[in-house]
Design a protein around this nucleic acid. Sequence first.
DNA 1: GCACACCATTGATCGAGATCAATGCCCGCT
DNA 2: AGCGGGCATTGATCTCGATCAATGGTGTGC
Lengths: 271, 271
Amino acid sequence: MSHLDKADTALFMSQLLGHALEMTGTAKDTSCGFSCGDTALPSQVDHCLQCPVRDLAVCSSLNDDEIGQLAQFVVGQEFSGGHDLFVEGDPASAVYTVTEGAVKTHKLMPDGRRQITGFFFAGDFVGLAHGENCAYSAEAAGTIRVCRFDRKRFDHVLDEFPKMRSRLLSEASDELAAAHNQMLLLGRKTAKERLATFLLMVDQRTAQWRKDEDVLELPMTRGDIADYLGLTTETVSRTFTQFRSAGYIAAQGTQDVKVLSREGLEDAAEG
Amino acid sequence: MSHLDKADTALFMSQLLGHALEMTGTAKDTSCGFSCGDTALPSQVDHCLQCPVRDLAVCSSLNDDEIGQLAQFVVGQEFSGGHDLFVEGDPASAVYTVTEGAVKTHKLMPDGRRQITGFFFAGDFVGLAHGENCAYSAEAAGTIRVCRFDRKRFDHVLDEFPKMRSRLLSEASDELAAAHNQMLLLGRKTAKERLATFLLMVDQRTAQWRKDEDVLELPMTRGDIADYLGLTTETVSRTFTQFRSAGYIAAQGTQDVKVLSREGLEDAAEG
DNA sequence: GCACACCATTGATCGAGATCAATGCCCGCT
DNA sequence: AGCGGGCATTGATCTCGATCAATGGTGTGC
């Protein structure tokens, strides 16, 4: 909660000052900062045109001219780990594209039980909401960069560029398919199957931009993984150990996982 | 699989014969059958205009003229319980609106473990898919009626009527929010909490057209409920018994549940 | 009316993963 | 260097829901 207040205040101040790139939490300054006014300065359009996920994100459905319109109100933001993009129940006022790092979404029960409902990596779109309010919270898992779009203005862009709404619907369908997979995992898979499925998912979804194709950098803690897989940290930890013993993976520190046998993981993922 | 073949064959023959209302499985004949050719006959447009879910479904985003275009290629179909609308892995060739009864979607593991990923009631839209193939199967839970739309022609309608795509995106967002709730349920809730949550969900989603507002007619078996909640039939059955003992519900046969204490269920749903 | 198949319920037992508990590691801070 | 907090790992034990098993109910077709 306090995170959000802080972020919002920072945003407000920054808008007053005419800076489009936000920083929140403990994030360090960033090399690609730039300033803008109400209309798109060349540098701001460049921000979008030179975006690292230009061809991955929903924006890829727009041509350079159209991107210019979007660029007029995009706000680049940086969050450090643990800080909230938005919180369940908040008015849904913005949507986001992840440009760097990973975002996790979650739901909480009154007694503190938590379910992480999804991870979003560079190029992914976060914040689709039907009603007035957010149905879940979104939080930075490690330092991230996102593009923030005001929801109303974004909706307006969608009206103008049907291609983009179409693309967004595709994205939503994808997310829905992923959700179905996750329900199967949560409802019917064993701990081993869950972790193996998870590792293969991360493998697949981060393949495009990894340095070493066999080393997964997990931006989340064991607790996060547990809350995503419907397990406890202890079980996740034990299962990692089993996979190490079985020779499926090798650990390099606790965040990096070297995949030794994709086949082993694939077998483990389906019993 | 054989179900589908049968349905598809029936569909093909019926189209040859110029009948737009299909019947599959053991479904009885229906009082509102009608015939049509390639273009919309008045009666077919009427089919849509007089549709019981006209104001509930995605079609509600279209005016009477626009509905006419949709009506040109809608196919009314009737399925009896257990028959498949489509199967995971099949080419995604059609989308559906439920007009009567309930549809369930599910995923299977190679060894037969099953997870039901959603129930769809009158007015709901089923069959959103991004890729070429269905990401899950859909099956009639009890006798149902649906409107079937060829996917390509439906996509074309979406291009023509942006309102409808917008509405569909809303629908998808809703479904996504429901999926998040279900992940919380499957990952973190106890058996009691799951069943209570389920009963309240059915209560809410079927409220609009129930005869008796306190009696839920469950169109699915205990096994279906179990596969939806990530439990076994035995546990579902035991939990029903507990709710009966606690006075939250009363049974009238096995398919009908009279809600005696919504408050009791609400408490049970969150521990 | 009877046989069969399927479904729901209840009881007894088992086991995967939760819970409780202890230890070690790493990193930032003083 | 020394301290403290968060995270990961490992061990011991417990518990909720799964599994195995038996029975009764219901509807369908012969």
